[in-house]
Structure formats: C-alpha cells, structure tokens
C-alpha cells in the first residue's frame, strides 16, 4: 500500500508492493487483468488489489484439488507444525500487519488485538491437529463380533468467504480449522480485508504449507459466492457475514452437489472451537470381524 504521505522525506521514493493473490503456491494477478481500488475509511486511495474472476476461482479449485490428497495424508504432527510455523511467521511480521490494519482503518489497539489474536488462533488450531480425532473419533461397541471405529476424514476442497469486520482475524478464523481438518481451502476476501489477506499470503507461503493447500483470492463477493456454491468440485462452503439473501441463495446452490454449507455470523464468537474443525470433516466408520 502507499502508506501515508509521500515518502520523499529521506530523499528516497518508497518501493510499493503490488499485491498478488496466492493460487497453487504462486503469487498471481487475476487472469482477468482486473483490479479493485482500496480506500482508507476517509476515502483516501490506498492502492489496488486484484479482482479475482470466475476463472481465477476455477484455477484455485484445480490447485486445491491437486493438493488435497497430499495434505489429507500429511501427518497430524506435521500439520500442527506447519500451522505453528504460520504463527511464527505472523508473529515475526506483527508490526507490518499492525500497520496494514491501521492503514485500512483499524485503531492501533484494535489492530494490535487482531494481530495477536490471529497468531494465537493459529497456535490454538496447530494444537488440535493431532487431537481432534482422539476427542471426536470413537470406537463403537457393536453387539456382534466386529471391531468398529469411527474416524474423521477431511472433506476435500473447501471454499471460504471471509468477512470484512475483522479483516485479518475473520480470514484466519476461517482458514485454520479448515486446514487443521486436512482440507485444502480457497478463500475470498473482499473490500478492505483484501489487503491483510494478500499480506497473509506472504506469511503462508513461507510457512511450509504445500502449494495449493491455501489459496487466497480477493474480489467482489456478489461476483464469486455463487460460483463457489455451485462448483461441482468443491466439497464445502463456509461463509462469514453473509446476508439472508446470500445465505438462501448459497444453500440452494449448494444442493447441486450436496456441498456442505456453513454460514457463520460475523460476530467474532467461537473463534476457538474444535467443533469448527468438525464442520468440514466427514465421519467414516469401519467394520472388521474379530476372529481367528
């Protein structure tokens, strides 16, 4: 972003960053070549972000599907370490994120709170990766000579529409339980939230997430939510801050392939909740005879 004022005071012009989306591990501009303006709350122009197209979303689904099986089969220990690594990277760039959040209108206190909460949330879910199966799986006492157990398995590819209220935290609170559950994810950030989202891409890209596990798009909600809801190779849709009309349309569209749909209110409740991991995992039950 352009930051504040013209930075010629030291006699040197700042090098601005071109924000790019993260798809399949690559930082890319929208294939459509379109961009959106981002303005500060006062209306001051801050810069451009990409305006993802439907094709960008489709490309992201391809990348996410390609990465799905590898991430699903990554050990819980390693998944936890990678999520923790993301926390480390975010902590290391906490100052930058505070500045970015302030630039889009958050108070210094709010910006600081959001960054620390986002970091802690990553640590929280990092700790769940090797536990939720123990807590939420089961061995089932069937009344026949069988060993019967239920485990969680990732759904596959999940689309997540993030809110704008807590620009960074809303994104992290969506991503963390989805990937902790072994899914790959395509996120959509809109409006001012696009800026920290694209910044987060740089954190995630250096956090050992395999390419395609997390794909970050930014764009226009109305343009893309419908695509996310109808895409036949997406297993679940999680949204935050949708209005009644969008939720109704999404629920209807998700019926196309019985995509699991979880509209969440943007009230900041339940950020730390292992049941959010359960939303985007399936329960698989296996039977095997016990005999000699």
């Amino acid at each position: 972003m352009s930051g504040s004022g013209e930075n010629m005071k030291s006699g040197r012009l700042d090098v601005r960053k071109t924000y790019k989306m993260l798809i399949g591990g690559a930082f890319v501009r929208s294939e459509s070549g379109r961009a959106l303006d981002v303005n500060a709350p006062g209306g001051k122009w801050l810069g451009h972000v990409c305006r993802a197209s439907r094709k960008d979303f489709r490309n992201a689904v391809v990348a996410a599907r390609k990465a799905a099986s590898g991430w699903a089969n990554t050990t819980p220990y390693l998944k936890g370490q990678i999520l923790y690594r993301a926390a480390e990277m975010l902590e290391g760039r906490a100052t930058t994120f505070r500045e970015v959040l302030q630039s889009i209108g958050l108070s210094p206190v709010a910006a600081k709170t959001e960054v620390t909460q986002a970091i802690d949330l990553l640590v929280y879910y990092a700790g769940w990766t090797d536990k939720y199966l123990q807590v939420f799986g089961s061995v089932n006492p069937v009344s026949s000579p069988y060993f019967n157990f239920s485990v969680t398995e990732p759904m596959g590819v999940v689309a997540y529409v993030s809110g704008e209220k807590r620009p960074l935290l809303d994104l992290v609170t969506g991503i963390a339980p989805i990937v902790a559950g072994g899914n790959t994810v395509i996120t959509l950030s809109t409006g001012r939230a696009a800026v920290p989202a694209m910044e987060l891409g740089e954190v995630l890209a250096t956090s050992d997430f395999p390419h395609g596990v997390i794909n970050l798009l930014c764009g226009v909600r109305e343009e893309l939510v419908g695509q996310m809801a109808t895409h036949m190779d997406v297993n679940a849709l999680v949204t935050q801050g949708a209005d009644a009309k969008e939720s109704a349309a999404s629920r209807e569209a998700c019926a196309l392939n019985l995509k699991r749909f979880f509209p969440r209110e943007a009230n900041g409740k339940g950020d730390e909740d292992p049941y959010r991991i359960l939303d985007t995992v399936e329960i698989k039950t296996t039977w095997h005879p016990v005999g000699g």
């Binding site: 019967n148 399936e282 329960i283 698989k284 039950t285």
Partner: peptide
C-alpha cells in the same frame, strides 16, 4: 471415500455405529 466401510464383511448395522454418507450420499450421521 465413503461414510461406512465394511472390511471382510458387508451390510452390518448397529445402533452404536454411525451411518451416513460423503458427497452426494448426503450429510449427517
């Protein structure tokens, strides 16, 4: 990719055993 797998058996049911599908076989157990 399915909600119930029978290994060396098939079509066994029990009230303590969760049943339900992945994908277009539905959701919930």
């Amino acid at each position: 990719k399915a909600g119930v797998i029978w290994a060396n058996t098939f079509n066994k049911f029990d009230p303590s055993s969760p049943f339900g599908g992945y994908k277009e076989s539905g959701y919930g157990r």
